[in-house]
Design a protein around this nucleic acid. Structure first.
Lengths: 213, 213
DNA sequence: CGTTATGTACACCGCTCTGTGTGCTTACGG
DNA sequence: CCGTAAGCACACAGAGCGGTGTACATAACG
């Protein structure tokens, strides 16, 4: 006991139940999916009574939405804010995902919830648009002729790799990265002296967890 | 006795309950998803008693698997067997999908079922591999340098467009088609005299339903 | 100290889901 | 025309789900 306190809003919470619930959500929703994770199981994993859970969230839907909302910040900055990489390398680093990564939770939520009006679905949309925008920014920084287009294209590649990895049960990100390299080199006018087509190994984004595929 | 056949393709059923069940599955599973479609609703739509349904399928899992198995044939031949198109046009025609198309049922099943061992998930994998193989064949026919690679790349683009269309609630296939055009032209050595980059409108795969995105 | 927000323990409700048991009706083929 | 298999109606079992009610414990802070 006697743990750290201080909730996100800085209010005093008796003993961070909310955080444990959200933390358990991250794990269980991602590993098992949303629909296959019951509130009972989730509360058990969070070591929280069911009653408490429903005092923090009006319902599972709200919890799911909040679970998705928590993903944004770290992911976006995790790759795009790396100053040790050139813009081009940063674009490619977005494809450097550990092969065991479950499945982009936004895609999972959109498919499982199946309701575009659901708050979680709207977060998913917003997130995907934000990623595309960040990619576009980086593409602009890299000198791409049409940054918005390239950003959208790379975002599509990431989603394709995520979906395909799930269906085939085999890592599809290398393929996506190869395509990305082609697109990037095609989009940057007087581009770099690009190495042999399969040079994507040079990006080596090191130990960034990168869970936003 | 005197009755014989009861093959899986079973003929001579009193009055085709099995077919109605599968037909209703196609519609409901695709429109609503698998988990959100109960057997009660499905039986009602098929105008079949629940008892009958469970005499044809040992359980929902088997029904789902059979539902996926029925998709393969028409989709593959629907695009790849078109003799009125050049190989290159056929490759691009795979991206010509009506914007209202729900979501590739194989991706949906893989996400919803969440179990790679499930028979339906295995059908999904097999189908995706078959599509990639067909694309590779067509790529070879078109004279691509590395047909297998191009096939895999185009397959990834299709899946990416499907997933992204779902998440963003906006058609992503045009973007995918644009990428495909770049990849194809890059892969075919002394390629065609290609028109302005955004010529993908010329493929116009006409009224092919094409449900396999 | 005592008040109050917070968390707990556990039973419980109503609903939906997959799946059955039972007995009755209909269609078809010999 | 009759036998048999296919299909039907309906109720119900058993489980899991989301969500609640109640009564009690504890931590924080004045």
């Amino acid at each position: 006991m006697t743990e750290l306190e201080k909730g996100p809003q800085g209010r005093r919470r008796g003993r961070g139940a909310r955080e444990r619930i959200l933390s358990a959500s991250q794990q269980l929703f991602r590993e098992q999916g949303i629909n296959r994770t019951g509130m009972d199981q989730l509360c058990a994993a969070a070591q929280v009574s069911k009653r408490t859970a429903y005092q923090h969230f009006t319902g599972k839907d709200e919890l799911v939405a909040e679970y998705l909302r928590r993903f944004d910040p770290s992911v976006l900055s995790g790759v795009f804010d790396r100053t040790d990489l050139t813009p081009r390398e940063r674009l490619l680093a977005a494809f450097d995902v550990p092969p065991t990564t479950p499945l982009c939770p936004y895609i999972g939520a959109a498919v499982e919830l199946h309701d575009p009006q659901h708050a979680a679905s709207q977060y998913a949309r917003a997130y995907k648009e934000a990623v595309a925008a960040r990619l576009a920014d980086t593409a602009r920084e890299a000198g791409a002729a049409n940054p918005e287009q390239l950003g959208e294209q790379l975002a599509l590649l990431i989603d394709g790799a995520a979906a395909r990895t799930r269906v085939l049960n085999a890592d599809a990100f290398p393929t996506a990265a190869a395509i990305a390299a082609v697109l990037i080199d095609n989009a940057i006018p007087a581009s770099s002296p690009r190495q042999p087509s399969d040079d994507r190994g040079t990006t080596r984004s090191a130990p960034v967890p990168m869970e936003g595929q």
